[in-house]
Each structure stands twice: as C-alpha cells, then as structure tokens.
Design a protein around this nucleic acid. Structure first.
Lengths: 158, 158
DNA sequence: TTGTATTTCATACTTAGGTGTGATGGTATT
DNA sequence: AATACCATCACACCTAAGTATGAAATACAA
C-alpha cells in the first residue's frame, strides 16, 4: 500500500519540477550553452531521487526467514502379541531406570497399590513412593496410569 | 571495491548521454516545446538509473537471516498399530458395561485423570467418578490400574 | 403408562497417590 | 579417599481416587 504513496509523491515532485523548469526555460534559455548545465543538474537530481526511492522501497527487505526443521529421531518397531516379549533394554538404560524401579513398575502395571507392593517386596510404603516418584520423573509422566501406558508403548514392559 | 566500478560506469553513461543530448539539441530544439518532452525522458531515465544503482549498491544490505530451529521429535509405533485388535464385545455385554463406561475406560487406560476425562467429555468430575466406580464394580476390581490390567486381559481394550 | 437401565450431578467422607525435602548405608567408579 | 549412584526410610503436605448414598432426566421396552 505504501508503495503507491511513494509513487504518487514521486509523480508530484516530477510535475512540480517540470513546471519549475518550464518557468526557468524562459529565464535561462537566454544564456547560451546553459542548457547542458541544467540538464546535468536535472540528471543528478533525478538520480538522487531514484536512489532515495529505491532505498525507501528496499528497506523492508531485511527478511528474517524462520525455518523449522522437524527431525524424527527414533522409531520403535512393535511386537506381536503372541510372540515372546523382548524388553527394550536400550530404552530402560537410556532413561536410567534402575532394577528396583523396574520391579516396582511391573507391579504397578499389574494393578497393585503402593501398600501392596511394599508388602510384596518387604519394603516400607515410603520406599515404594520414592521409587514410583523417580519412575514418573524418568518416564516424564505425572500419574501411574500414564507410566503404565508409556512403559508399554516404549516396550519397557509387556 | 565494486562500488567504484559502478560509479565509473554511471559516470560514463552520464557523459555519453550528455554528448547524445548535445547532439540532439540542435536537431530537436527546432521543434518548439519539445524541450519538456525530452527533459521528462531524461528525468525518467536518470531516475531508473538511480534506482538501478541503488539496487546494485544496496544488495548486500538486504540481509536475509535464516534462523533454523531444529525440533527433535521422537516417534513411537504403538504395538496395536500393526495388529488388528478385535474387542471382545461378548465380554463387554456379559459384564454389562455401557457405552459411556467403555468410553471412560479407554481414557482411564490412556492415562488421563478423572478431572481430565471430565473436561474431555464435558461432564462433571462426579459423573466420571460414578462411571469409574460402576466400571470397577463390573470388572470386579478396586483400582483403576487393576481395571486397565483386567480390561486388557479380557480384550475389552487394546 | 409403568418399569428399568442409563446418564448425569451432587455432598460428604475416606483412602490412596504423589511431591518435596532430607537422611543413611551400601557399592561401584574415579 | 572422594564421588556418584542406588536403595532404603521418614515426615509433612497436598491432590487425586474411590465409596456411600441419593436424586433427577432420558430413553426404551413391556
């Protein structure tokens, strides 16, 4: 939109200058060989005008292109229900899940309450809570149900 | 360095044009009121020259910063993707699980909290609690984790 | 129309789950 | 010996989950 504004301004300037020159013609034409002088002046003037115009029009060209590249990292192939389940040990290791934590995870997925797990493993309820909390942190989840879902999806548990 | 090159080329063009105009002066000045016409032509020509010059000189100033944002995305294939899961409708019917209850069961298994399920289904928290309670009764379980385990075992959910 | 099941919402209450912080002892690793 | 990690236990605190009970609207079949 502002492109047209510049063009209109430029047009007006041109018209004004033509009028000015027409008036100057009668005054300056008397002096011989003065034509070249003011043609040069016109040339310089309009060149500057062109430069100014170009500068105005090209200023907003400082583009910042933001390119978003999505890199898909790893794909875990699913298993068959009937076939033997192969735990994703690489994933377990990568998440830093300890042996005890994995044991608790299995029992959580089996539907046991923290109290029941504590009794089963001869541990205190506090210990189980610590384990589950660390587990949720490592699995990046908030609840045990989410932990079950994610662990199954990552083939950590069957 | 190439800045001067452009200036020299421009200067040469100007000189050449002045010579051309000086020659044309004798031919065209005879025609009355032709002065304005060729002054306009000069104006347009030099303006374009100015624009071209400016464009050439300002090219390196039109910065194009390309910010590349790399987003790493881990992709997992769920095991049910390849297999065709057939829900045990007979079992669902036998246990008397209603449509709504089944819907809630799916969301419970997906790891959503009661509050989240309520928001997702545009229901109150109370309603979800009622549904889950009935579900636990019908599945003969005490906790949601047990419900998930049993529902999966009975092929009610994938 | 009446009965039955479903779906919805509600209050009050209890229990389980989860967080944050901190401490202790064991066991490898450096 | 020092460090890092794991496993264990503990307390305080808060939130989520689950129970018991009741009730109203809807839908569908007898």
């Amino acid at each position: 939109m502002f492109k047209f504004k510049h063009i209109i301004i430029y047009g007006c300037c041109l018209a004004l200058l033509l009028l000015l020159l027409q008036w100057a013609e009668y005054k300056l034409l008397i002096i011989d060989h003065a034509t070249e002088v003011y043609i040069t002046l016109i040339a310089i003037l309009f060149t500057m005008l062109g430069i100014w115009l170009a500068a105005k029009l090209m200023k907003p060209k400082t583009e910042i292109r933001t390119e978003t590249v999505v890199v898909e990292k790893e794909v875990y192939i699913s298993r068959s229900e009937n076939e033997s389940f192969i735990p994703n040990n690489g994933m377990i290791e990568r998440l830093g899940i300890s042996e005890r934590e994995l044991e608790v995870l299995h029992l959580v997925a089996a539907g046991y309450s923290n109290q029941e797990i504590a009794e089963k493993l001869f541990l205190s309820l506090h210990t189980i809570k610590t384990h589950t909390s660390r587990l949720f942190e490592k699995l990046d989840v908030k609840r045990r149900t989410q932990a079950i879902e994610k662990a199954k999806r990552l083939n950590i548990i069957a």
